[in-house]
């Protein structure tokens, strides 16, 4: 795939203190480092090793990731929404690349 592209799903609005469900998916090969190429040479590991979710700067959920997580990694988790604001999602690649996504939510 070209540059990994995140998909994030969460509600646009919530009531104060509501616990919402967040789903995230990103395109990534998650090369485990266990495979070999056609010549029998090991294919070097390249995975997303860390995923984080923050709300208005406060950590909500994060995940330390090993190669046993499937290609196109999927995470579903929850967040308690105290106020209107912005969720920031970050995926960190072994090669140092950082993929980011932001999504706002309005408390009614």
């Amino acid at each position: 795939m070209a540059t990994p592209k995140p998909r994030v799903k969460l509600p646009k609005t919530a009531s104060a203190g509501e616990i919402i469900t967040i789903k995230t998916l990103i395109s990534h090969q998650m090369e485990s480092g266990q495979r070999k190429d056609k010549n029998g040479d090991p294919i070097p590991r390249q995975i997303i090793n860390k995923f984080t979710c923050e709300f208005n700067g406060t950590p909500v959920f994060s995940c330390d990731i090993d190669p046993a997580i499937s290609a196109n990694p999927y995470f579903e988790f929850n967040a308690k929404v105290p106020e209107s604001g912005t969720f920031k999602f970050t995926w960190i690649d072994d090669d140092g690349s950082v993929y980011e996504h932001e999504a706002g939510i309005e408390v009614k």
């Binding site: 795939m1 592209k5 998909r7 799903k9 789903k23 998916l25 990103i26 395109s27 290609a71 196109n72 999927y74």
Partner: peptide, 10 residues
């Protein structure tokens, strides 16, 4: 949403 094939649709 979960269907990884949708990444290719995107």
């Amino acid at each position: 949403f979960q269907n990884p094939g949708m990444l290719y649709v995107d």
